[in-house]
Design a protein around this nucleic acid. Sequence first.
DNA 1: GTTGACCCTCCAATGATGGGAGGGTGCAGG
DNA 2: CCTGCACCCTCCCATCATTGGAGGGTCAAC
Lengths: 150, 150
Amino acid sequence: MNIGEASKATGISVKMLRYYEEIGLVRPALRAYSGYRVYSDKNIAMLRFVRRARDLGFQVKQIASLLDLWQDGSRASADVKALALDHVRELEQRRRELDEMIGTLQHLAHHCHGDSRPDCPILTGLSTEEEATPKPARKKASRRSFAVAG
Amino acid sequence: MNIGEASKATGISVKMLRYYEEIGLVRPALRAYSGYRVYSDKNIAMLRFVRRARDLGFQVKQIASLLDLWQDGSRASADVKALALDHVRELEQRRRELDEMIGTLQHLAHHCHGDSRPDCPILTGLSTEEEATPKPARKKASRRSFAVAG
DNA sequence: GTTGACCCTCCAATGATGGGAGGGTGCAGG
DNA sequence: CCTGCACCCTCCCATCATTGGAGGGTCAAC
């Protein structure tokens, strides 16, 4: 299986397959004499695992931990569960922040007549409101991508 | 007002103040003879506006549009509202994706006994489930930060 | 034996942010 | 006056996951 087929089989782009290898998330694929990467069914299974974890919003580092647990026959399911629940809490935190933003924006938009006149509570709100969102604790662990914290 | 004071007054880090200037989001601050940036109260008001928009999850490009509207005395409030509601839809889309992830993970975790035994429905789920989240349409506009799409 | 689809590596960009090096400025105390 | 410290400057690099492209090799089919 070449990298293109592996990509189709796993739903991971060719670029990302090479990247995951480069950063050590997965072991380097075997190479044909041509230098082409060759993927086994076992590789594919592992990569699908990676993609599903990614689909659930796990970061690469967490996926690495999950992979370790996956491959460790003597793991404790408690460890897996802890990792998963940690991640759930992280996602819930992000959701709370989204909810705050959505709520504030909807509130502002609701009071905006939205016609051709210039006066607009949305702009006024952005000009004068204090803290739209309660400044979320800037802890290292919670990496949010969108600019939300101050 | 030097950049450090401006930072405290706006809640925007010194680094970001310089960055916003560099990318043209705000006009370059005046300079003292020393080369130090000098901020007026008007600058500060504008930067606070920027920070609040950022707190509501707007991207820098959208903030640029908002700033334009803010400064345009003859704007139509409909334009502002449209921008805000577009953004609300974007946030709601992100929230739906988060909800899916949270739901799936909680479901998996709920079935995991979480003790010292190795068998774990979470890992099994990641190994065998199809599409954890329905592949969200990969449209350019919806920039999500976490890896979610395949 | 050429064409076209594939693969390789290396480099760069994204977006918002932080970190640091290397060096200048400004003010207060000795 | 000089020293020290807090502040400021620019420039470069790192992050995270991901895409894009350039420049070049490989393979299979026609």
